[in-house]
Simulated scan of single mutants.
Amino acid sequence: LANCFDFIAALPKSKAVLTIPGSLANESDEFVTLCGDKLFELASRFYCRAIKLSSSDLSLWYELSLNYYNRSLKYGTTETRKKYLELAAETSKHIIKEAPHKWKYWNLLGVICTTKDVQNLSLAQHCFIKALELDRKLAIVWTNLGVLYLSQGKIMLANTAFKQAQQSEPSFANAWTGQAQVAEILKPAETIDLLQHSITLSYNDESAIQYAYWVCMLLSDTKNQKRAQYYVEHLNAISSAIDSITWYCNANETNISSEALSFLGYLNYNQRNWCIATRTFQAASQQIEQSSNRDKMLCNLAYSLLKDNRPIEAVQAFENVTEATFRS
Rank of each mutant, 00 (worst) to 15 (best):
F31A: 06
F31G: 05
F31W: 05
V32A: 00
T33L: 06
T33E: 06
L34E: 01
L34F: 01
G36H: 00
G36T: 01
D37Y: 10
D37T: 11
K38P: 04
K38V: 06
K38A: 14
L42I: 02
R45S: 11
F46Q: 06
R49T: 15
R49Q: 15
I51E: 11
I51V: 09
K52Y: 07
K52R: 15
L53Y: 07
L53P: 07
S54D: 13
S54V: 10
D57C: 09
Y62C: 09
E63H: 10
L64D: 09
L66I: 08
N67S: 14
N67Y: 00
N67V: 00
R71Y: 02
S72Y: 03
K74M: 04
G76K: 01
T78V: 04
T80V: 11
T80R: 11
R81E: 15
K82I: 15
K83M: 13
K83G: 08
Y84Q: 13
L85G: 03
L85M: 05
L85E: 11
E86W: 09
A88P: 12
A89Q: 10
T91G: 14
S92T: 08
K93N: 15
H94N: 11
I95Y: 04
I95A: 04
I96L: 02
I96E: 00
K97F: 08
K97P: 10
E98D: 07
E98M: 12
A99K: 10
P100A: 04
H101C: 06
H101I: 09
K102I: 10
K104V: 01
